[in-house]
Each structure stands twice: as structure tokens, then as C-alpha cells.
Computed example of a mutant assay.
Amino acid sequence: MLRGYFLEAVPDPAPAPVPEPATVLLLGAGLGALGLMKKKHSDLTAAPPHLRRCEN
């Protein structure tokens, strides 16, 4: 027989904090800017059509 073991009422943990709308907006703007920078950089590194090699 087990003595001294019993169930206690455990309070619920505090809910996770919800991010503020401004934080989500700043994060989205930063990710969007990174995406645009990557797109612009990839466009600049591509060779213009008249300098591309024809592979026949």
C-alpha cells in the first residue's frame, strides 16, 4: 500500500503572451524587405539576354 501519495489540484499555467500587432507588422515588413532585396539582387546578377550563351 502506498501512503502519502495523493492528488493535489494543480493550477493551470499562465497563458502564453500574445504578440502585439505592431510586433507582427514589423516582423512582416522586415521579411518582406528581405524578400524584395533577394529578388532585386538575383535580377542584378543575371546576365542580360544579349550576353547569355546559346546552348545548341
Rank of each mutant, 00 (worst) to 15 (best):
M1E: 14
M1L: 13
M1W: 14
M1Y: 12
L2E: 04
L2W: 02
R3H: 01
G4Q: 09
G4D: 07
G4L: 03
Y5I: 07
Y5W: 07
Y5C: 07
F6T: 10
F6D: 02
F6L: 08
F6G: 09
F6W: 10
F6S: 10
L7Y: 01
E8D: 08
A9Y: 14
A9K: 15
V10K: 15
V10Y: 00
P11S: 13
P11M: 04
P11C: 10
P11I: 02
D12T: 12
D12V: 08
D12A: 14
P13F: 08
P13N: 13
P13V: 01
A14P: 15
A14S: 05
P15N: 07
P15G: 13
P15M: 07
A16Y: 11
A16P: 14
A16T: 10
P17G: 13
P17M: 06
P17I: 01
V18L: 06
V18G: 02
V18A: 07
V18S: 03
V18T: 09
P19V: 01
P19N: 11
P19F: 01
E20A: 13
E20Q: 08
P21T: 05
P21V: 05
P21H: 00
A22T: 08
T23H: 02
V24S: 06
L25G: 06
L26M: 08
L26V: 08
L26P: 00
L26S: 13
G28L: 05
G28W: 01
G28K: 02
G28I: 04
A29W: 05
A29K: 14
A29V: 11
G30V: 10
G30N: 10
G30C: 10
G32A: 15
A33S: 14
A33H: 12
A33Y: 06
G35W: 06
G35I: 04
G35V: 12
L36T: 01
L36K: 05
L36Q: 03
M37F: 12
M37R: 14
K38C: 12
K38N: 03
K39E: 00
K39T: 08
K39G: 05
K39Y: 12
K39N: 04
K39F: 11
K39I: 04
K40C: 00
K40D: 00
K40H: 09
K40M: 05
H41I: 06
H41E: 13
H41M: 10
S42F: 01
D43W: 14
D43E: 07
D43F: 03
D43P: 02
D43C: 03
L44V: 04
T45G: 03
T45W: 13
A46C: 03
A47E: 09
A47L: 12
P48Y: 12
P49H: 05
P49Q: 07
H50T: 07
H50V: 00
H50L: 09
L51S: 10
L51V: 05
L51H: 13
L51G: 11
R52D: 04
R52M: 07
R52V: 03
R53Q: 15
C54I: 10
C54A: 11
C54W: 13
E55D: 08
E55V: 10
E55Y: 13
N56S: 11
N56M: 12
N56C: 09
N56I: 05
N56F: 13
